[in-house]
Design a protein around this nucleic acid. Structure first.
Lengths: 347, 347
DNA sequence: ATGAAAGCGCTAACAG
DNA sequence: CTGTTAGCGCTTTCAT
């Protein structure tokens, strides 16, 4: 054990040149077996460990990638990040995580991470990039891949949120609901998340497809927390001509709707149907019907894609669209009127 | 804009030496104002950006720290990590996140992260370290701080889990419960988390303090997921001589108990009281009484502590104990028998 | 105040 | 197969 043992010392002790030691370390085949043993022995005896910085500088690669994530504490984000870390670890990359909560943070990070020799690549989660930002990164020779976000010319993995919004809404419509509300989140000034507006588009499309006129008063927004959603939902459900069903753009928002319903004494799904989006862990717990998207897998695919980029391998698909799936649990049912009509018919 | 502009080119263009350019970049005061302007102008014109690796190597510091986290997707972990990232970002450190799910991963990471010039410091979350591991890291000149984990001689921030377990149990006992169960998680082979065993110790101490004999059959374990906990809780509650209350060692486990109760048709808190631990976001949502620990803050304190270590500042406290607080919501109430006795008295 | 030069520790091309 | 040497790009004495 020795502090600060350098390759030269190992070479000298083993009676070889530094080149040979380097070859041994990096598993080059062009080293006689005896020599290798001797070097290895000295390395162990001296407790030598190569300097990461030095080898990275010589190699011209940091063997690290950064991931830009908005709101790390959201379960959906953590799930994606989990997938990313898994493959990056397996591929031997360090993963620098940058939590982003404001547009300034996003831009600052995006800029700084493009510094020479800072990271080999960047994975951006959910945050839409402007063309020039993406180009700046790539022009700097830094690999770039987007997850849950879109930008032409940049490798990306995403889901069809319009289809997802349609899926959720159509489920409610098929059940017989005619007053279906939409609960989205407020636009985080400047962050420009695109997923939720797209889900809203899907909602409108489904309505139109069913010949139902869009009621702007049934579209609400709240901050992205259970409490905030509950508050907004309380107003919505307590107002005049309330909906019999609501499509909440994320499971977290749906939780708020559920809480509001309970507080108002509404039984779900008897008095109110609710469908969410994402299928985070708690969704199953509260038996929420929801649109499931492969969160962890999106992270894995994105990370794999980045690894390809970094190895200069051809990216298999510039744009990978992951499947969405409606998971029906017990937060959705036909509206009371329909159910009663059914009874009447039967009777 | 130029790809690969190096400091020498800037120096040449500005008609100065590289030393001067370096001084300008790093804000050294010993540069004439005119010179500084000229250099700055050239830097901008050429689009020069210093190489992170090169400066780090010269400086002998990576300006990066690693954080070892077990099970990133657990809400409590994400909350802590969020706190860590916040202060590290503010302090200008990159944060490499290493997710750890097995003892081998933990040991491998701990070993590799101690490579020279890999990171300046390591923050370990919840994972207990053996003395020799901690010493190896520190001996390698890498800063080390523990969060939610204990190890003499290492700066750390934690809570008193024994006291927490006592707090939760005493609350139930004070309510009049006499059959109080404990639900912990299975020992993750080799990971050796210590928090939950300590909470169990607090539970036993509270029982003893109330003169109640410990019933081993009331102590159960499950994997750390809502589903698994629900399964175990179902057996517990459906068995002979079931408890009237359960202290679940984490909120996630408590969720399982709640789910099991509902499935069995037990009303909470009328037929069963439940108290959890952590106070993660969902706890409020399901109105779970719980022992709150400052999750995000623990991360912040830990990160701050690490920053002190890295700056060779004296660490204010080797061992910071954060406060615990009982949050009573509506998952706890007196047991039915007691409530009825009370009624009788009144009547 | 500023230029020249010696590292920081390793990799890789080149010669042998 | 292996030793030597020239970088990788920046910081920092040490002179001037």
């Amino acid at each position: 054990m020795g502090r600060g043992v350098k390759i030269a010392e190992v070479a000298a002790t083993a009676g070889v040149g530094v080149g040979t030691v380097s070859r041994v370390i990096n598993g080059s085949s062009h080293v006689r077996d005896g020599t290798r043993q001797r070097v290895l022995e000295v390395i162990n005896r001296l407790g030598y460990r190569p300097s990461r910085l030095a080898s990275s500088l010589a190699l011209g690669s940091t063997r690290a990638v950064a991931v830009l994530v908005p709101f790390l504490t959201r379960p959906s984000v953590a799930a994606r990040l989990n997938g990313i870390l898994g493959v990056l670890d397996a591929e031997g990359y360090d993963c620098i995580v940058c939590n982003v909560e404001t547009p300034e943070q996003r831009d600052r990070n995006l800029h700084n991470l493009a510094d020479p020799h800072r990271v080999d690549g960047i994975l951006v989660l959910s945050l839409p990039l402007r063309r020039h930002q993406a180009e700046a990164v790539m022009a700097a020779g830094v690999g770039l891949v987007l997850v849950d976000s879109d930008c032409a010319g940049v490798p990306r993995v995403l889901v069809d949120n319009v289809a997802g919004g349609h899926l959720a809404t159509a489920h409610l419509l098929d059940l017989g609901h005619r007053q279906v509300a939409f609960l989205g989140d407020i636009t985080y000034k400047g962050m420009g998340f695109r997923s939720i507006p797209r889900r809203l588009a899907g909602y409108r499309r489904a309505l139109a497809g069913a010949g139902i006129t869009f009621r702007p008063d049934l579209v609400r927004r709240s901050r992205h927390s259970v409490d905030a959603a509950a508050e907004v939902a309380t107003q919505l459900l307590g107002g005049r001509d309330p909906p019999t069903a609501v499509f909440a753009a994320t499971d977290t928002l749906a939780m708020g709707v559920l809480a509001a319903a309970e507080a108002l004494g509404l039984l779900v799904p008897r008095d109110l149907s609710v469908v969410g989006f994402d299928d985070i862990d708690v969704a199953a717990m509260v038996k929420l019907s929801t649109v499931r998207q492969p969160l962890q897998r999106s992270g894995e695919e994105g990370a794999r894609k980045l690894c390809s980029v970094l190895r200069d391998l051809p990216v298999r698909a510039m744009r990978t669209v992951l499947p969405l799936e409606l998971v029906v649990r017990s937060s959705t049912a036909p509206p009371l009127v329909t159910a009663m009509a059914g009874l009447r018919e039967v009777g």
